[in-house]
Design a protein around this nucleic acid. Sequence first.
DNA 1: AAAAACAATAGACCATGGTTTATGGTTGGA
DNA 2: TCCAACCATAAACCATGGTCTATTGTTTTT
Lengths: 120, 120
Amino acid sequence: MRIGELAERSGVSRDTVRFYERNGLISSVAGQSETNNYRDYPEENLVRLNFFVKARDAGMSIADMRDIIEAMDGRCDASLARNVIESKINELKERADQIQRVIEFLQRGPDPDGDFAPGN
Amino acid sequence: MRIGELAERSGVSRDTVRFYERNGLISSVAGQSETNNYRDYPEENLVRLNFFVKARDAGMSIADMRDIIEAMDGRCDASLARNVIESKINELKERADQIQRVIEFLQRGPDPDGDFAPGN
DNA sequence: AAAAACAATAGACCATGGTTTATGGTTGGA
DNA sequence: TCCAACCATAAACCATGGTCTATTGTTTTT
């Protein structure tokens, strides 16, 4: 499909698609037309972009996403890939825990102290 | 205390302290010395900074943090403050959920599809 | 055919969250 | 006294994650 369709169906802008491509997150191939140089974006990019949007909302960086898709693409050996994924999962869990701590702080108050509590 | 001590004890750099102050997250008062214009950072800033570090690690923006401390400082009425805090809590929960979804994706595979799965 | 919509490329621009540099003054220990 | 470490201020700089503009060419729609 062409970039506009991909952008439309994935919910990110054309510019963002190009930005992601420049940063190695997705890839396109030369189109079959002789008259233009429109690129063709294979269907799989749609799946990826759906993931990127989720991952972005979860606070994941472009570099992290790239690590993950490279690991998943089997460009490196399977056990290394598993390690990469595992470590990203652990980072995400850390982050979720940290969020939980902040939520608790906001709900109940600061750790031991008195001032700067939500109950003020 | 002076900026260096605050930075040291809070674990952020002096530059970051100044940056946070410029952005309304903490405040200082003029020092008592006649010969210099060193600022004095009240103890409470330490408590705040401890929170900011947590909040930052949880992915909270400066603007969000500012909203929270302004709400907690009682500069606006209590019910409004509670609303602000509540909505930040909800945003954090959203974020945590999103992270959980990404974790599950990475552990089990994509939603319905076949390609781009961690199992590759 | 003419206009509107789309595409490619390159580079400028923007906000966010800091960090670094430059300049000049202050303080504390050897 | 002299140097290292500290402080203040302002402005420049940086990476990240995009977004916007300009230019040029291609479809598609009317």
